[in-house]
């Protein structure tokens, strides 16, 4: 792998890892607020919002930590891409239903307001990072 490709791989891996570590941590620290953010999507029954809010941050955190450590990179990227795809479908449904909610992606219950359109754009960027990391990890293994 050439030098710039190695740098691109490590850069995208670390950035992706840091994003998901941060996202997982802030949600894990305030599960109830995150449950409220999940409920805003009006997709799940009330109790299931809490279940998602209690479990999802730890999946994000685990995948993020593994990426930062450079361990199990391809499985972690797969996991992140899978979660991101689900987030994108949820955001798309929010846009189609005309709901004006905060995406709750990073600071559940916080002051900021990130529209579904902006969040969808950001998730597209994350998907691109995941693709770059996946390809980089593939080359290193292959």
């Amino acid at each position: 792998m050439t030098c710039w490709r190695t740098m691109l791989y490590h850069g995208s891996r670390c950035l992706l890892g840091a994003i998901f570590c941060y996202a997982g941590l802030v949600k894990a620290l305030d599960v109830v607020a995150f449950a409220g953010s999940v409920a805003n999507y009006q997709v799940l029954p009330y109790q299931l919002n809490f279940l998602v809010a209690a479990l999802l941050p730890y999946v994000e955190l685990a995948a993020g930590v593994l990426l930062l450590l450079g361990r199990q990179v391809r499985p972690a990227v797969l996991l992140i891409a899978g979660m991101n795809a689900v987030f994108m479908v949820a955001l798309l449904s929010v846009i189609l239903r005309g709901l004006d909610i905060d995406c709750g992606c990073f600071r559940p219950g916080g002051e900021g307001h990130t529209s579904a359109q902006m969040a969808l754009l950001r998730d597209a960027g994350i998907m691109l990072l995941a693709l770059v990391t996946w390809l980089g990890a593939g080359r290193r293994n292959g």
Binding site: L55, Y58, V59, A63, R74, P75, L78, L79
Partner: peptide, 11 residues
């Protein structure tokens, strides 16, 4: 399989 295992442990 690795991804599922990570998710399972995190859950």
């Amino acid at each position: 399989q690795g991804a599922l295992l990570i998710a399972l442990l995190a859950v």
